[in-house]
Design a protein around this nucleic acid. Structure first.
Lengths: 351, 351
DNA sequence: CTGAAAGCGCTTACAG
DNA sequence: CTGAAAGCGCTTACAG
């Protein structure tokens, strides 16, 4: 079965009684083909089960039908969602997704990317954080003339598409929720400086606090690095204070899980003694008790948009490169609840 | 910069004063090139920064330098690890990884795979569970003559490579651990019937119980489907019994997390009142308190092996297709502990 | 050890 | 609306 040579465009042309150029036109949906001719060609294509080979199309034409995805040590869930959105959109358009895991700190990262681009000649590249802000990677992309889209970049490039969500707005919503539940002393645990999301989420937190006339207590602003461990450590600092916060907004879910673990270890009830909110809707967020209140990022939709910007760039929508801001979702689950007693209480009874 | 045409093999040949065939020989590390000639060619390659284009190599030759990865709704962590291992190994060998997310239940899945194979002409394909056991997918692969490797298959194909770990052995080790901690009444929560791992893990559990002369209590064998929810439900069934088990071995980590959540909700201390063990070492397993005792699958190493079997099939190692069984690791963490009191106790004091 | 020629299977100008 | 020719950039027999 595999010995039977696969049909080529020549076979189709011969069978349909037209030139290969006409077959090519039909396949690429170019205009200017008589509808009867088109029908006839399509019939033969179906009969022979003909599929154009990507390598031949790529060599002859200007497109490779390949989209690249570059990532570095993201949460596994993030990559999985990106790929879900990207591969589905690629399939719809006859494209394919090539993935490459990079070391963002590798000294030869520019060469690695340059190699990949030269060999693969992808029609576009999707960059996830923190790769999307790596100057060497962007330099390699520019040198090769490969279009690219940054997902949630900290530093949007002048010549790249951008897909993201409104991190500031989402962080504001989380903070509003906590405040509306009666919390006044709210701890905040930030992320690493080199991740754009860190600053944006903190900005949202501060904005919401200010909007409600609540002062920021410096001791309640704790550093973190988006890891479980940093959540545990920050929680110990926050919860060992004489007046501990009644709620904590963690910069992401891993940190929130660290806070949750620390609180449970200290014998605090969540959310009875402490409300906890995270960010990202990581898989684990729904797999703990109590389930974490968090923000769902539209990652798959962002990836889908990224592919679209790459395969069919919008025609001059005002100035500058295209930008897509997608809607997020605040997920109010079980780790947050209303403050049970006056905010000045020191101990709460344990059920 | 991008307007400057990329150098081709012809440019290299001219510059080096040899034929393109000789350049091709050097690039492909074929024997029979004078070392001086080789040096000269490599010097020019470096000077011009020449990189062969995959599309041209694929069209002219027998290889595409593309490896495909097919998956369906795996845990995000699983895909992430597979890709980590696969892309690194691919890069070392000048290959690239194309990923495709499929719907294992789609009626036209065979056509989808057939299309992909015809367009991409990958040199090999990696199948993850449960795709690796889908007859339609395997049929499409065979029809196209594309070599493939199954990762942890339930039904090893006669003509495919296999990479896996010893699930039975690992499940035995987990069970041995619990027994050695003094547990005698151990609950087991199985997985879905269509996942090969379900049966193998249960087999290991039963084997270890038998080895210690412990009878299987039918009420302690609970069904599940590898989801958090099924873990919660099974836990309620197990823990509401008059004589509840002192330990639970969950079929995977998501289920174990469900048991943990249910136990905590019921006010049981883990591991004080109940030891819990999982399987997979999912990211969440280390992000809860107490951290889950579990089994780390060598997923990245398995993927690396899969790539190797595809790009350089071993020369006739005995009969049949190659098979690689990789070492797993039992991770003893905080969710399991020794039985504190005689096994016949009904209530344990709560710290 | 080295090379000239053909050819892989498409798309791209160009012509009519 | 349709087609003949050239060419993309490599590898593959084949020859010496």
């Amino acid at each position: 079965m595999s010995s039977k040579r696969a049909p080529t465009i020549i076979d189709v042309a011969r069978e349909a009684g037209v030139s290969i150029k006409t077959v090519s036109r039909v396949l690429n949906q170019e205009p200017g083909v008589h509808s009867e001719t088109r029908e006839q060609v399509l019939k033969v294509v179906a009969a022979l089960n003909y599929r154009p080979k990507l390598s031949a199309r790529a060599l002859a034409g200007a497109r490779s039908y390949l989209i690249g995805l570059l990532y570095y040590d993201p949460s596994a869930a993030f990559v999985a969602w990106v790929q879900q959105g990207a591969t589905l959109r690629c399939r719809e358009a006859g494209y394919h997704l090539v993935v490459e895991s990079l070391d963002n700190d590798a000294p030869d990262i520019e060469t690695q990317v340059e190699r990949m681009l030269a060999a693969l000649q992808p029609d576009g590249m999707i960059l996830t954080p923190p790769i999307c802000d790596n100057p060497k990677v962007i330099q390699a992309l520019r040198a090769a003339g490969t279009p690219f889209v940054q997902m949630s970049p900290g530093q949007p490039a002048a010549d790249a598409g951008v897909v993201c969500m409104d991190e500031v707005q989402a962080a504001e919503e989380v903070t509003h929720l906590l405040i509306s539940l009666g919390h006044r002393h709210i701890g905040f645990i930030g992320g690493p400086a080199d991740q754009a999301a860190s600053g944006l989420r903190r900005q949202g937190f501060e904005r919401a606090m200010a909007a409600h006339g609540l002062a920021l207590e410096p001791e309640l602003l704790q550093p973190g690095d988006f890891t479980f461990r940093s959540g545990v450590e920050a929680a110990h600092r926050l919860l060992s204070r004489r007046q501990r916060p009644s709620a904590v907004f963690a910069g992401n879910d891993d940190v929130a899980l660290g806070v949750l673990a620390a609180a449970q270890r200290l014998g605090l009830a969540v959310p009875g003694d402490l409300s906890i909110a995270g960010f990202d809707d990581s898989p684990a967020a729904g797999l703990v008790w109590p389930a974490l209140t968090t923000v769902r990022q539209p990652v798959a939709a962002m990836a889908r948009s990224a592919v679209e910007l790459l395969i069919a760039p919008p025609e001059s929508e005002g100035q500058g490169p295209p930008r897509r801001v997608l809607a997020h979702e605040l997920l109010v689950r079980d780790s947050t609840s209303a403050l049970p007693t006056p905010p000045s209480r020191r101990r709460s009874p344990k059920g």
